[in-house]
């Protein structure tokens, strides 16, 4: 499989949130008005202006306290359900060189909720006018030979980026070294997280809900056999 991938080693992530800020900085995204809700996690969730969010969870596993950090972002699925749901390459398309899944201003014309619902990782977010946004793999940087902003800024080596082959090899190597490590949905997506605990403890959507990709494939199949009239209606 050609194109690019990320490897996110959560076992060394310190939740410094350099990645979260770097993402905003590179994209010139505004800050949200926030309050302290009794957690370090802020903003509370991804949004139209927050593509990268470090999630914090305090859990007790086998009587031991763990503070789990999950630097959440779009997974750039190999077969993106959001793209299939949109079914409009002027709004959502895949970059052939990198495999980045990209959203344009034309997402405004889509059924935003349907796209959001189709994402197995609960990533896309809509503006008030319905335009959708999410992580763009820093495609402008990558095309110019730079690392994505979040990867470039990461001090610990938790965020890694490179060819899919390299990243899979790195993920495999690291997994072999860390006790109890597992890779999340590595075969389906380009942002491969490595975790040591039950993925659900990090974040409800750390792994795709079961059958998510099958559902999307089913949607795609349905689209393929759609009667012609549908197409004309959209013109």
């Amino acid at each position: 499989m050609p194109g690019k991938s990320f490897f996110v080693d959560t076992t060394v992530c310190t939740a410094c949130r350099g990645c979260q800020v770097a993402c905003k900085q590179w994209h010139g995204l505004p800050a949200e008005k926030t309050v302290n809700r009794g957690s370090y996690q802020n903003p509370a969730d991804l949004s139209f202006v927050t593509y990268k969010l470090v999630r914090f969870e305090e859990v007790v596993v086998k009587k031991k306290l763990k503070w789990l950090f999950f630097a959440d972002q779009c997974r750039h699925c190999l077969e993106p359900p959001c793209e299939m749901t949109a079914d409009d390459p002027t709004a959502i398309f895949r970059d052939s060189a990198t495999g980045a899944v990209l959203y344009t201003a034309n997402t405004k014309k889509l059924d935003a909720q349907a796209v959001i619902d189709s994402c197995p990782y609960n990533i896309p977010r809509a503006a008030k006018d319905g335009t959708l946004a999410k992580c763009d793999m820093c495609i402008d940087r990558v095309e110019n030979g730079l690392l994505p902003a979040c990867v470039k800024t990461c001090p610990t080596g938790a965020m890694n980026f490179g060819s899919r082959k390299e990243m899979l090899a790195l993920a495999k190597k690291r997994k072999a070294k860390v006790k109890g490590a597992k890779l999340l949905d590595a075969g389906d997506i380009r942002v491969i997280y490595m975790v040591t605990e039950d993925p659900k403890l990090y974040h409800k959507f750390a792994v795709a809900s079961i059958g998510a990709f099958d559902v999307s494939r089913a949607v795609a199949m349905k689209r393929m056999v759609r009667p012609l009239t549908d197409l004309t209606a959209r013109l």
Binding site: V21, K24, V35, G38, N42
Partner: peptide, 29 residues
């Protein structure tokens, strides 16, 4: 710096669950 304030917007006090219970304090108040 708005991006930094967005992440840590307010002064806080961290306390144990036990102490919070004792004082009747709820998370985030």
């Amino acid at each position: 710096q708005p991006w930094l304030l967005e992440m840590q917007p307010q002064v806080f006090v961290e306390m144990s669950e036990k102490l919070a219970k004792l004082k009747g304090i709820k998370n985030g108040e």
